[in-house]
Write a protein that binds this DNA or RNA. Structure first.
Lengths: 171, 171
DNA sequence: CTTTCTGCAAAGTATTTGCATGTTT
DNA sequence: AAACATGCAAATACTTTGCAGAAAG
């Protein structure tokens, strides 16, 4: 960032906006993103915000390469390596999750803080979150049945989302 | 296979044993593996059997590279590409599953035919299967709550297995 | 005999890293 | 000013493929 010597997050964000650095997101949401980026002592940079915004804007999972491809148009100097690093940082701070994909490529999806499990529509490719409350009973049953204490889990469900199902004549 | 012109699975398997091609597995189990390998019209080869045995023998997830590393000692001519192809074939016939791993490497674990979800111990790295019956209620709740019809899912639970938990002083 | 598989080597991709330089705190 | 992040290019994986010869059905 060249112009501002920065005073606070809001100022930075305003600057990004003025300089054409993606600022399509509602300011409030942008603030929230920025806070989450900086949460673990990480620094707020143009690049990280842009990547985080772009990922959050995606309804489906994307790979680092795809994201870079989409962003390079608006941000020709954004390096692929930076996208990788930014996504990895997001995963570490719980803002995103990594999914496996067919061709051995990993893909990322943005997470809501408490939502870490996904419903992936095999028709429209859209990803939505599973209501976490539904899982609690399962975790308890796993403990009862297997004596296994779940610390974290990775759940991805693939199938027909509500709207595709409707469109498909309710199956 | 050079010696036998092949008459039946059992003969082939015996040959493998005689020629030093890994045959540590109980014959019955080997038969079962062989049947699953050939299930979809695929052919039974030394390599596929060796890879399948090795994977089945692993209590934890391994990558294609690791497996190749372990096997090359006993089978110096086994090509890495063959291991990849063999594992992929196993995944396709439902004998194995692919898991994601930290370093963007995919790892594989052997599956029991009907068990496709895993409990991965974060301490001893051992993998066991989740009792599928526990999942049914969850799938129903997902449909109720989200209108999403699950076709298939990928569930990996990470945490403390029963024996590590015991050893760790019952948590 | 036909079809499928293997090994090898050669691509192709994907991902990570070193380092000089630029930015955020 | 100190700590950290970026870009670039180079180095590393990791995975897939083409092809000729070998093996299975």
């Amino acid at each position: 960032m060249r112009i501002a010597l920065t005073i606070n997050v809001r100022m930075i964000l305003d600057n990004l906006g003025r300089r054409g650095y993606t600022a399509r997101m509602a300011p409030k949401r942008q603030d929230r993103l920025a806070k989450r980026i900086t949460a673990r002592g990480r620094r707020l940079t143009d690049q990280r915000l842009v990547v985080a915004e772009a990922l959050a804007a995606c309804r489906e999972a994307v790979s680092a390469q795809e994201l870079h491809g989409r962003l390079r148009r608006g941000h020709p100097r954004l390096a692929l390596a930076t996208v990788y690093r930014a996504l990895e940082a997001q995963v570490e701070s719980g803002m995103a999750r990594r999914l496996e994909r067919s061709g051995h490529v990993s893909a990322y999806v943005a997470c809501e803080p408490a939502h870490h499990h996904h419903l992936v529509c095999t028709r429209c490719q859209r990803v939505s979150d599973v209501d976490e409350a539904l899982l609690r009973p399962l975790l308890r049953r796993i403990d009862d049945r297997h004596g296994f204490t779940v610390e974290h889990e990775r759940l991805d469900f693939y199938g027909l989302c509500a709207s595709c199902r409707r469109r498909a004549g309710d199956r």
